[in-house]
């Protein structure tokens, strides 16, 4: 699976009752609580073997499925 598919599957499982596009703001949909941001970043670290640097711990890197996938592609060591 490519990053986009993996991220889309994870986010889709957690966004409740909403059809979420790849470019839609995950946190503006009210389909998740703000705590999902923590869950998402912890998942990114575990799944892709990334340690997100303090400077990158910015919600803007994780706002949409496409941005998360792009972040993983840029910082990830493992596919």
């Amino acid at each position: 699976m490519d990053h986009l598919t993996t991220v889309r599957a994870f986010v889709g499982k957690h966004v409740q009752g909403i059809e979420l596009g790849d470019d839609q703001d995950i946190f503006a949909t009210a389909g998740v609580s703000s705590l999902f941001a923590v869950q998402l970043v912890v998942w990114v670290e575990k799944t892709f073997g990334i340690s997100v640097a303090p400077a990158d711990l910015d919600i803007d890197n994780f706002r949409t499925v496409r941005e998360v996938a792009r972040f993983v592609a840029e910082r990830g060591l493992m596919a």
Binding site: A37, V38, V41, V52, P54, L57, D58, I59
Partner: peptide
């Protein structure tokens, strides 16, 4: 590390 994502006051 993570709560700064939600509350900027906690960042860093």
């Amino acid at each position: 590390r993570m709560y700064g994502l939600i509350d900027p006051e906690l960042a860093g």
